[in-house]
């Protein structure tokens, strides 16, 4: 028979591994979302760089496909995966997110294409980073990395800024998504 100290240690090991399983399932789900958004954002930025005129159509399409993809990922995920069940609050979060972003960029301020190209990734990644404080360090690392590279590009890259953002934001999310599958 073991003593209470050893029993406590065994229960702590069990708690630790259960947390790791939950974290691993969450990262798997989040990695799918990051890969999906990464591909869309990459495409949106490439369109903006090559055919700026069509950016006004490309970005709403990216947003609609992106949110639709997130809803699909949640609905298609096994119900035991943390955060997998559909929750109407998720839709509300996106409505508030986009509404606040719109008010900032079009009502309080009048952002040009370059400012919009920097604002939305920073705004999105800010929430990503904040969420990471609760859900896992990988979100924080990816969020801060993309915000930092976006700011560097905003202040130093010229006309090729959308191309920079294709690789930094789109590529960053794709790489981040692949990384989350490995940790």
């Amino acid at each position: 028979m073991i003593d209470s100290k050893e029993a406590s240690a065994a229960l702590a090991d069990i708690d630790d591994i259960v947390q790791r399983v939950k974290q691993s399932q969450l990262y798997e789900l989040a990695s799918l979302a990051a890969l999906w958004w990464g591909v869309l954002v990459f495409a949106g930025n490439v369109v903006t760089w090559l055919w700026p005129f069509y950016a006004v159509y490309a970005w709403p399409a990216v947003d609609i496909l992106g949110v639709g993809g997130l809803v699909a990922i949640r609905l298609l995920s096994p119900p035991h995966v943390p955060g997998a069940a559909f929750d109407i609050r998720l839709v509300l979060v996106f409505v508030l997110f986009f509404a606040f972003g719109y008010i900032c960029t079009n009502v309080l301020g009048h952002f040009g294409p370059r400012e919009l190209g920097a604002f939305w990734p920073i705004y999105f990644m800010l929430f990503y980073t904040l969420g990471g404080l609760w859900f896992g360090y990988a979100f924080v690392a990816i969020g801060i990395g993309i915000i930092a590279l976006t700011l560097i590009g905003f202040f130093t890259i010229g006309a090729a800024f959308p191309l920079w953002m294709a690789f930094v934001n789109g590529g960053g999310l794709i790489l981040g998504g692949l990384w989350m599958r490995r940790i």
Partner: peptide, 24 residues
């Protein structure tokens, strides 16, 4: 104990791949 704890954290009849179990 770790193996059983990890498998018990999943719903009934749901398994873990060897590679994932190794990582965990």
């Amino acid at each position: 104990l770790k193996i059983m704890a990890a498998l018990n954290a999943l719903p009934v009849a749901t398994g873990l791949e060897f590679a994932r179990l190794k990582k965990l």
